[in-house]
Design a protein around this nucleic acid. Structure first.
Lengths: 212, 212
DNA sequence: ATACTATGACTGACTGATCAGTCAGTCAAC
DNA sequence: GTTGACTGACTGATCAGTCAGTCATAGTAT
């Protein structure tokens, strides 16, 4: 996995770095709950403050703007998701095995983080260009890694019309259906069954036989 | 294709039905442009009015609320998309052929309507429950039709872990990547090439051999 | 030991900007 | 005169962000 691009720095009015970290955690957790419930635009910083157990003024000691909050939420969501997948493919040398592992990890992570992913998908485009760029770079680097894994894991085998790049898009995008259409995928069965079925679809899309 | 569920009625202050239709077209077109540019929340009705060439008060002769505008946009987007696909599979009797036709039509329509689809995906959840329900019913009916087509077109052939339902979700959801990640899929090549590659991925996912 | 001062974290009432929606007024057609 | 379509200034509600004030703690001077 490639080096992680630099994150956008957000200024805080408080000097104690540990406290900044702690309060940010509170804020992000609260913001996730509120944004999920109301969407970013209709969510208020009062809601977030109430939820986090912090006053309005305290909130603004840790973020400068409402948008900073959205950036922190998206950044956190992307980081967790990317980390989970990096860990899953660590130390796997065989390209085919690495690909299968990655696919399963992507699907699992998308299911686990589906609520946060919904926020990112719906709201990240509202960020200013700089924040959007920082996030997009992180996601792009991650998907480029998946492109490499797909490329190495699909050499030989049947002819495919789609590039490794588009295949990687399919692998990383399709499972977001868990976040965007939960009412529709629920019928497939419990989480493990749903994950297995999705992995099956993606491996078929890659024209890879699934190990039994 | 099943009967289309009833649309939500939106009241107008003007009696001339043809004029209502005409003004609504103006409003929807303007709204699509503005919502795409700024997102629904940050878009103002002044923007929409300016874009449509109608005054603030006139705008409110044709819709009651800002949200009505969003509903009209989403309703229009879904109707066009669904119509395009219904027409593509009309009169095709062979289940396998019908499925291949449907897949290609879905992909094509998603590419053609990608800008409107991005609005629906990002903003439809902001609608009130009733509007959301009306829209969702239309989409559900449509996807159920695709489920039936997938079910009929994939009988026999290799064993699949995913249900026809989840496969239909994949078919109807994956091409929304055109709307949500245009900067990533662009590299695949011109529209026709991109559509072909996506069709190839989906047919593979369905474990169907593509006709040469 | 005590009093005073400085520092840093927090509070919540307040401010100014924004905008969805309204309505008195205008104009054209019949 | 009546009706219907349109206009845009206005209103009231909302909310992101501010800032004077409060409180607790630590350090310094007497």
């Amino acid at each position: 996995m490639q080096a992680v691009p630099a994150r956008r720095r957000i200024a805080a009015n408080v000097k104690d770095a540990a406290l900044v970290g702690e309060r940010r955690d509170q804020i992000v957790e609260a913001a996730i709950a509120v944004f999920r419930d109301k969407g970013f635009a209709a969510a208020t910083m009062r809601d977030v403050g109430l939820r986090a157990g912090l006053s309005q003024g305290t909130l603004y000691n840790y973020v400068r703007t409402k948008e900073d909050t959205l950036y922190l939420v998206c950044d956190r969501a992307v980081a967790h998701y990317v980390d989970q997948i990096a860990r899953a493919v660590e130390g796997v040398a065989d390209p085919r095995e690495r690909l299968v592992r990655a696919v399963r990890a992507v699907v699992r992570a998308q299911y686990d983080h589906r609520h946060n992913i919904a926020i990112v998908l719906r709201e990240a485009h509202l960020l200013d260009a700089r924040s959007r760029e920082a996030l997009r770079r992180r996601v792009d680097v991650f998907i480029d890694d998946i492109v490499a894994i797909v490329g190495a894991g699909t050499t030989g085998g049947p002819r495919r019309r789609a590039s490794a790049r588009l295949l990687a898009e399919a692998v990383t995008y399709l499972p977001t259906v868990f976040a965007m259409r939960p009412w529709r995928v629920r019928a497939e069965g419990p989480p493990d069954k749903l994950v297995d079925a999705m992995v099956d679809i993606l491996l078929a899309a890659l024209r890879i036989e699934q190990p039994a």
